[in-house]
Amino acid sequence: MLLGIIFIALVAFWTLFLVALPYLYMVVESFHPNLPPIRRGGPDDFVTLTQYKSFFVTPNSGTVNWTHMGAFGFSIIASIAVTALNFAICYPLAYYMAQAGTPQKVRTLMLCLIVPYWVNEILRAFSLRLLLASKGLINQILMGTGITDVPIDFLGNNTGLYVGLSYAYLLVMMFPLYNAIESLDRNQIEAARDLGAPWWRIHKDVVIPYAKPGIASGCTMVFMLSAGSLAAPQFLGGPRTLWFTAIVYDFFFQNFNWPRGAAYAFILLTGCIILVMAMLRLFKVSLGETIK
């Protein structure tokens, strides 16, 4: 009884002081002009939409801000692609582990999936660079076997970005899928098969509808995390690739323009939430189901 109250108080404390208040500060910040500390609260400090407007229109030149909107669009679309790629990889794996595989094979597979995540993200990203670089192992194999004459620019064409992001969030997709499929009664799969369904129909009619909350949960998390990721796009993206979080980062730490950085971060957050909500509605999943 007492323990319960203490836990609730603790969680309430950190939700309020460590999460809600700083966010609130950021929201307030984003509606203010960028001023040196000394002029804050002075006559130049007022509530404004300038920071949000600057996302659409470049402040000094007054031209449409294609660079930032483009980066935003690219980040969203690339994150959708990463989510789709992860789903395509994880669904068969999760199905195998949850329904088809023998316990021993499933354990081995699980180990192979989890252990690489003990390696830190920087090391993982750079070792991927080594593999994908123009003189990297993959290009050497491709050229050695005569498949190509010139090295393929995997980093420049963003292959590295997609591979890196997908791998970074593979488990985030894997576990909700696995959990959802694992609880499906195998007799239902066999019943569908017995009634004449070919394998793809069994997945379409029985497994996927049943696992829908898990799929929604995995997709939502992978999408949110990759849209908001910083390291992988920076290390693995091509030289011309501009990830939206990199812009936000620069406003905070290069230009010391916190209001604009905050506004951009909220634009990203709002965009992602709207998209996720639209998707959940489209696939008729309630938000509550995804966190089960």
Partner: peptide, 29 residues
């Protein structure tokens, strides 16, 4: 395979599809 045999199986736990209606269950085959 079981999906090509002229047999139909009724499972011990019935294995009805919980997300389908009665009619959808009956006519799934």
């Amino acid at each position: 395979g079981p999906n090509k045999r002229p047999t139909a199986l009724i499972f011990q736990n019935l294995a009805l599809f919980p997300l389908m209606t009665v009619a959808e269950n009956i006519t799934y085959g």
